[in-house]
Design a protein around this nucleic acid. Structure first.
Length: 213
DNA sequence: AACGACTACAACCGCTCTGCC
DNA sequence: GGGCAGAGCGGTTGTAGTCGT
């Protein structure tokens, strides 16, 4: 496609942007956010709340689309965002939860207060993924013969009423990255892994699980 | 010092889901 | 039931910074 483009320099980055054909209005701005834009967005969200992102974007007058504003808020501006290196505990938890859930980053993020799904996804793709592959190529520390037993014990350890009924742990041999599913009447996997409002990390069940590996 | 390769991460894109009319 | 808009998710890309030669 032979389309024209213009350069947009933000924070010393130069971004090539395609121009919308026959467009009478300016295309939405893309690329890195400036501190000024951040401040404006935070202010508008403080007044109007973090919802209806398209109208919020319009109110802010930033010439950003709603999606971009939402992403910026959730991944960067939101209060209580924890920045900086992952602790060993957090890294370990990501590894375990990924084993259990696969690439369901938002669920994994729900277990790590202050961390965003995007951050965890990036962390996995840039570091943990390689680490895991390396481990798999080398030697396995997992006691395969005790894996299922450990998983079942983990379920028993979690005290939620739904799991008091018939609960099974099914293996997904063909599903890479998500080896197990918890099957139980009235059990909602996404609610189960939503710990956003919880306080400090509760790793008791992880520790129990680890004892089997 | 220069340059290419690699790494980390912010941001975008496309898709699906959900709720409302 | 269908269409639409908003929201959310996971995959991917682009670029600045770092490292090795």
């Amino acid at each position: 496609m032979a389309s024209s483009s213009f350069d947009c320099s933000i924070n010393s980055k130069v971004i090539k942007k395609p121009l919308e054909a026959n467009s009478t209005k300016l295309p939405h701005k893309k690329g890195a956010w400036t501190p000024q834009e951040d401040a404006i967005l935070a202010e508008v969200i403080a007044i109007h709340g973090a919802s209806r992102w398209n109208s919020l974007a319009a109110r802010a007058g930033l010439n950003r689309n709603g999606k971009s504003c939402r992403l910026r808020w959730l991944n960067y501006l939101r209060p209580n965002i924890k920045r900086g290196n992952m602790s060993d505990q957090e890294e370990d938890l990501i590894l375990r939860l990924h084993k259990l859930l696969g690439n369901r980053w938002s669920l994994i993020a729900g277990r790590l207060p202050g961390r965003t799904d995007n951050e965890i996804k990036n962390y996995w793709n840039t570091r943990l993924c390689k680490k895991v592959k390396k481990q798999q190529l080398g030697f396995s520390t997992i006691r395969e013969d005790h894996k299922d037993e450990g998983m079942m014990m983990m379920v028993e350890e979690i005290k939620i009423p739904a799991l008091e009924s018939e609960t099974t742990v099914e293996k997904n041999p063909n599903e890479e990255g998500k080896e197990y599913s918890i099957k139980c009447d009235g059990f909602d996997e996404s609610r189960f892994f939503d710990f956003f409002d919880e306080g400090p990390l509760n790793l008791e069940w992880v520790s129990k699980f680890l004892e089997f590996n």
